[in-house]
Design a protein around this nucleic acid. Structure first.
Lengths: 247, 247
DNA sequence: ATCTTATTTTGATTTAAATCAAATCAGAGC
DNA sequence: GCTCTGATTTGATTTAAATCAAAATAAGAT
């Protein structure tokens, strides 16, 4: 948690953001920019917003004008199918960009909801394209971010051939890897989402997720205590179930 | 089929491309560009390549430097899993861009093979970023193309909750829609890929695909004659099985 | 704290798809 | 044309996951 959270609390929202002093800088957009370029980016990112647990950042169908970078907290994205079922399309943690799907048609194609009290930086997309013209390395890095999102989504397709337990392990290894990059323990973390949400994301039912957790615990590979997960033998997990730990 | 295919045949490869006179223009990158901008793009796209059925356009692990737009023909992309299984990640028809996943790490993350004799236009990516700086509308359109790819991949995730027959129908409706946009019949087309490749893409076994085809034919919804498919009641298909016909 | 609701676990049963197996069919090359 | 190989269809059986159901646990609200 950032030390300024107490200070900004009363403002509720609309804090001036600053990439220059942001701890996420190396994960986020300004990777590899020099001082002057980061200042230009500070100019672009006009606002930071607080989103409380359960609040939506955007909803499918709404006009798109800004990307958002998760600064603190945790989000899930999902779409509502015609039959009313909720299909989870992703979980998003600090440093990750939300809204890339919306560029396609200037309309959000999914809903994004905070799974815990969160903060996001707003990036007006038109401004980003404008600044990108003068800072080629920023534009290039943005292209890498979009491409990475394509690779990420593709990774889900690769789960197609796997069975329940393997899918869950791939999911846990993926989370573990992303936590590690953010300086959190890759072996011991707590899930922000329910079994049902995990199941939706992985194409399985919540009971199947629960059973898969129990099975992995029986086998001594992990410890499960409700939302708290401990990976006891991450090498074994990696060996046994593909190396789907990549971002 | 383009009328110049006979002329260029003896050259085997390396034909000077020209967006200005390309029939795919409205599907491809130069959407909405004026004459002068299209000429600039002609400058960017230096080569057209012929890829024969079975030949690879690129392979996973190779250095990335160019995107490719399918001009004629049909491609499949796939990755080889550790266990040797081939996972199909997409099918690609004229006007569609290949290689967007590779921008992420300057390395191709999948293999692309021609399912029939094909032609592609080569877009050196560094040049594209350069020209994009001077033609904002081109850069913006490129962002839409990348975003569309994200949405497309996400669409696959939505199949998660569907059963075999529904997935196959969604797949057929998607192909139908893409054929229609290219001026081909949306009701009567022939598949370029095998049942096994369809199965791999949809996360099902080839026997299941075959059975699903037979079932749909029994129900009178489609006619199947090996690779030739005829949609008898596309409205019924759309109603019964979600509207996953979008690109 | 207590109540209430949502989440999770576990068991029994059903079902859809995978697997195993074999026959048929189509296409490429001779 | 014919042969051979790979692709497809169809059937029988097994298996993994969904579904149905109920109890146990955790999390929020008052």
């Amino acid at each position: 948690m950032p030390p300024d959270s107490l200070i900004t609390k009363k403002l509720r929202s609309n804090i001036k953001a600053s990439c220059s002093s942001c701890g996420l800088r190396e994960l986020c957009l300004p990777v590899g920019l020099d001082e002057q370029e980061v200042r230009a980016l500070d100019h672009l990112i006009n606002q930071r917003h607080k989103i409380r647990r359960g609040e939506h950042l955007h909803r499918a169908g709404l006009d798109f004008h800004s990307l958002h970078v998760v600064r603190t907290g945790f989000f899930k994205t999902y779409v509502l199918q015609e039959d009313g079922r909720e299909q989870v399309t992703g979980f998003h943690m600090p440093g990750e960009v939300l809204g890339l799907d919306a560029i396609s048609a200037d309309t959000h194609t999914c809903n994004a909801v905070a799974l815990e009290d969160s903060e996001v930086c707003e990036l007006p997309f038109a401004k980003l394209e404008g600044i990108g013209r003068t800072i080629p390395s920023l534009m290039h890095h943005f292209h890498k971010i979009m491409s990475r999102e394509i690779v990420r989504e593709r990774g889900m397709l690769l789960l197609g051939g796997m069975k329940a337990g393997e899918r869950l392990v791939a999911f846990l290894l993926n989370l573990s890897h992303r936590f590690a990059r953010r300086g959190y323990s890759p072996l011991d973390f707590n899930l922000r989402m329910t079994r049902e949400e995990i199941g939706s994301y992985l194409g399985l039912k919540l009971e199947t997720i629960s059973r898969a957790f129990s099975r992995l615990q029986e086998d001594g590979l992990i410890n499960v205590n409700n939302k708290r997960i401990r990976l006891n033998d991450i090498d074994h997990l990696r060996r046994q179930y593909g190396s789907s730990s990549c971002e």
